[in-house]
Each structure stands twice: as C-alpha cells, then as structure tokens.
C-alpha cells in the first residue's frame, strides 16, 4: 500500500494551544481535522507537512450555539451536522450538502471545517507521485505547466467542497483565530479563484466556527452533480436560498455554485429573482444567468461541456424545490437515494 511520509504529530486541547503551535511551526505545519482528504493526499506526496496539528481533542470546536441564527463548531463531523436538528429544520441546503459528502464512513471522520478548507482537485494533480512524474508534474505541485490549460499562468484546479456553496447561499460567516487575534469573514471572502492559493486563511489561522444568520423567511436547497450516489466529489454544486414575502414574491435570493471554478462563488442569478415570483420563466432566466458563470474545466469526472450544459437545469431543481414542488423523484434519480 502507499505509505505516509514521516511527520510530527500534535494534539492540543485548546484553540489557543493549537494557535501557538501553528505560530511556532510556521507554514511547514498543517492542521488535520478529520484527515479523510489530507491523509490520502500525503500518501501521494501532495502535502508533506513536517508537523500535523490535530483539532480532534479541542472540545471548544465541537460546540453549537442557538441564538439569532446558529453557530457550528468547525470540528463537528459531517454526520454530526447531518444529525443536528436545527440544521435539518432551518438550513435545508446545508443539511443536503453535508448529507451528500463522500460516504457515510467518511462523513464519520470528515469535519465541517475540513470540508470548507478542502484542497482543490484536478485529475492531473490527484494522482500519486509516479503518475505525476510521468507528466513531468503540473503547476499546482512540483511542475511548471497547467496541463488543463497549457497557456494558463494560474492553476485551475476545482474547488470541491459541498458545504461552502450551501453556507454562502445562507449568508454564513466563518471565524478565523490565530495568536494575533480573531476575525470573522463572509464565506465568500474565505476563497480565492486560484487553484493553489485558494483560501484567504493565513497558515497560522484556525477556522474555528461557522455562524449562520437567523433563518426567518428563508428556504434553501442544495443539488449536487456527481456520477454516483456515494464517494464522488461534486462536479457541480448548486446552492440556493430564497426569502419570500407571504404572497410568494422573492425579497432576497442567493445562488452559489461549487466545483465549476477554483472557488465556490455567489452568482448574480439570485438578484434576478428579487421582486418576482418563482415562476417557471423566472427560474429559467435565473438558471441561464447562473449557468453562464459556470466555467468547468476538463479536469474532473464527466464531460466539461455537458457539465456546463446541465447547470441551468440543476439551478431549476434547487429553485423548484424551494418553491415547494415535489422534487423527490428527481432527487432520487440524481442523488441515487432519498434525502
């Protein structure tokens, strides 16, 4: 089997202790919060941190708070998020996103914070060292050329987090803590459109919690495109959240896309809906607008032109579900199981 490289391992009990270790070790240290993605990556020598700082023993990262909205500790496993009644009842989009990450086994280990900070993916990159040597490596790791777009100076590896687009559509913020202090950033501001340097989080910062605003009047939905009913990362994620007046007129709406860029991002599709009712026409118009922002590349599963071609349809699934249509049969066909 493939073996891990050697590394030092720390398992601090508090956020401040973890922050101190990170500050002392510098960029050669990495956080591990589940490890379902990091450890396979280390076996393939994508990351070879000298030190791993585990967040598993830090109880403060596993706290949920209800007030005006919900605060979720970053070290909750994805299955703990799925089991959280407040999430299920009030933030359907996040619940649907978390419930579709990887497999039930991986969700038992993988965490919310880990999913938000997930390394970008590319099938020229997610290969073992020998494979990458056979293509003389690539821009993202050890090489000079982006083989997806050979003229590109920027790495185009795809953001593959499911929970981030859902949280973006819900208007969430993330808290980053270091020895220098703490700051809250809107989810959209956590990401950069660069497959290598894809987070605005500094190496000494720890993502400690996610805060969701109060859900009053909002309904949300997340639709994930992947080949199979389990395991696969998204090749398209559509997250929508809509707040409607009592007569059904849209007062506010956000539609975010995942997996079609190096970052998850909010589109302008949501704005198109404001002041309208969720009619078939309005949904189609928003779908077309959102789909025009999808820029899939030939670096994941499934044909890229097809992935772009179906984006509008997936936006429609999300908005129709929010409208109250019974989408359960479509959901079973796409997700391969009921959600």
């Amino acid at each position: 089997m493939m073996r891990l490289p050697w590394f030092e391992f720390h398992s601090p009990r508090s956020i401040s202790e973890a922050a101190k270790i990170l500050a002392a070790e510098g960029p050669q240290a990495m956080l591990i919060a589940g490890g379902t993605d990091l450890l396979p990556n280390m076996k393939r020598r994508h990351q070879t941190p000298a030190t791993l700082v585990s967040l598993r023993q830090i109880e403060a990262l596993k706290k949920a708070a209800n007030g005006s909205g919900v605060t979720l500790g970053a070290a909750f496993t994805l299955n703990e998020i799925v089991a959280n009644a407040a999430v299920r009842e009030q933030y359907a989009g996040l619940w649907q996103a978390a419930a579709q990450v990887a497999t039930v086994h991986l969700r038992n280990m993988g965490t919310l914070g880990g999913n938000l900070c997930l390394d970008t993916r590319c099938n020229y990159y997610n290969q073992n060292y020998e494979w990458r040597k056979a293509i003389d490596f690539c821009l993202k790791k050890d090489g000079e050329i982006c083989w997806v777009a050979t003229a590109s100076k920027r790495c185009v590896a795809a953001s593959s987090t499911d929970t981030a687009p859902a949280l973006m559509s819900l208007g969430a913020t993330a808290r980053l803590v270091s020895t220098q202090g703490e700051r809250d950033v809107a989810l959209a501001d956590l990401y950069k459109n660069d497959g290598i340097d894809y987070l605005t989080r500094r190496p000494d910062e720890i993502l400690t919690e996610v805060k969701l605003p109060a859900p009053e009047g909002w309904r949300s939905s997340y639709w994930k495109l992947r080949r199979r009913g389990a395991f696969d990362f998204p090749v398209l994620g559509v997250a929508a959240a809509v707040r409607t007046a009592s007569d059904g007129t849209v007062e506010d709406a956000r539609i975010a896309l995942g997996a079609v860029s190096s970052r998850p991002f909010l589109t302008k599709g949501g704005e198109l809906l404001i002041g309208k009712k969720l009619s078939d026409d309005a949904i189609a118009e928003a779908g077309a607008k959102v789909a025009s922002a999808a820029k899939p590349m030939d670096n994941t599963d499934l044909d890229l032109y097809w992935r772009k071609a179906v984006a509008a349809e997936f936006v429609g699934y999300a908005l129709r579900e929010i409208r109250g249509d019974d989408m359960s049969a479509t959901r079973v066909r796409i997700a391969r199981h009921a959600l």
């Binding site: 099938n123 199979r228 395991f231 599963d301 391969r336 199981h337």
Partner: peptide, 21 residues
Amino acid sequence: SNALVHKIPSLLEYKSLTSLD
C-alpha cells in the same frame, strides 16, 4: 510532451457502481 498516462488509476475516479447505484 510524450506522455500517455492512465487517466484515472484510482478506485475513486475509475467509476463503477456503488450499492446505491
């Protein structure tokens, strides 16, 4: 480049049905 490589030599990316499919 002369490279000709297996596109997806992994159980994750070489797709075959899961029990859900």
